[in-house]
């Protein structure tokens, strides 16, 4: 079973929910946590995993054999990303524009194009407190998060509960992360920003056909509009976490809420029961 923790707005508490949910379940079942927020992965700051493996994520980009190239121009015209330019007797490659579709190599009549593997990030695997931990990191300056996310997800273990910490937003990185999940938890805060971005995230998960529910974080710091919206839309409210300076301080130093605050441990247990019930139904 795969549960994705996502949100339209950043900073609402996705990582907090993902990490603490994983921790509260690890004694009951086998749990894997995937950090798919590859632009800004953070879950490791809380779980301090011991990494055992690191593999690069690469993108296949063209390399031109200028000896074989006849400067016919087919590849430069075919490239939808303008990553190739024909200049005098050479074809230049702009690797950072390339999406790795492989079209140029397939179409080159002279067989002058081979592919090299350009590193765009890496995936690390290890364990933390009995939880299998898999993290993707996109190299700084790279623009393509989805291939890194896809690589992380290709490592989803079978027979384990998999919790995905998703990137914020509603576009390709977020969709790559939540796609294929059995359930999605949308984390929000009770402010106009939280509500506006929650509505967008709801549209995305509905479009993808993933069943979902909502967690309201810092639930007493704002207004009642989010709850009203959930009621109107018949969206399950799975859990509310109040604002508490002690929780904020715990988060700030990378502490673990369920270990420091027993009252939250039982809230996370209830959250899990609510998710389980809805997935089984």
């Amino acid at each position: 079973m795969i549960v994705a923790i996502a949100s339209g707005k950043g900073g609402t508490g996705k990582t907090t929910i993902a990490v603490n949910l994983a921790l509260s379940l690890k004694d009951k079942m086998q749990v894997a946590l995937l950090d798919c927020d590859v632009e800004e992965p953070n879950a490791h700051l809380f779980l301090l995993p011991e990494f055992k493996e690191k593999e690069p994520v690469t993108l296949p980009v063209p390399a031109i054999d200028q000896e074989k190239c006849t400067q016919c121009g087919i590849c430069t015209r075919a490239c939808a990303y303008h990553a190739l330019a024909r200049v005098g007797k050479r074809v230049l490659v702009f690797e950072e524009l390339c999406h790795g579709c492989g079209g140029c190599g397939l179409l080159c009549p002279a067989g002058a194009i081979t592919e090299i593997h350009k590193e765009i990030g890496f995936v690390k695997r290890g364990t933390a407190r009995g939880i299998e931990f898999i993290q993707g990191t996109m190299n700084i300056g790279t623009a393509l998060a989805p291939p890194v996310i896809r690589k992380v997800k290709s490592r989803i273990p079978k027979d384990k509960l998999t919790i995905i910490d998703s990137p914020p937003g509603t576009s390709c990185p977020m969709i790559s992360a939540v796609y294929g999940a059995d359930y999605c938890v949308l984390v929000t805060e009770p402010t106009p920003f939280g509500l506006s971005d929650l509505k967008l995230a709801v549209e995305v998960v509905r479009e993808l056909g993933i069943p979902f529910g909502v967690v309201i974080n810092r639930a007493d710091m704002g207004d009642g509009e989010v709850e009203k919206y959930l009621q109107e839309q018949s969206i399950p409210l799975l859990m509310k976490i109040p604002f508490d300076r002690r929780y904020a301080a715990c988060y700030a130093r990378g502490g673990l809420l369920v270990e420091e605050f027993p009252e939250l441990k039982s809230s996370f247990d209830t959250l899990w029961k609510a998710i389980e019930r809805r997935v089984e139904a």
Partner: peptide, 10 residues
């Protein structure tokens, strides 16, 4: 600006 370090940030 957007959060992150990916394509919209660049």
């Amino acid at each position: 600006g957007p959060p992150g370090i990916g394509c919209p940030v660049i």
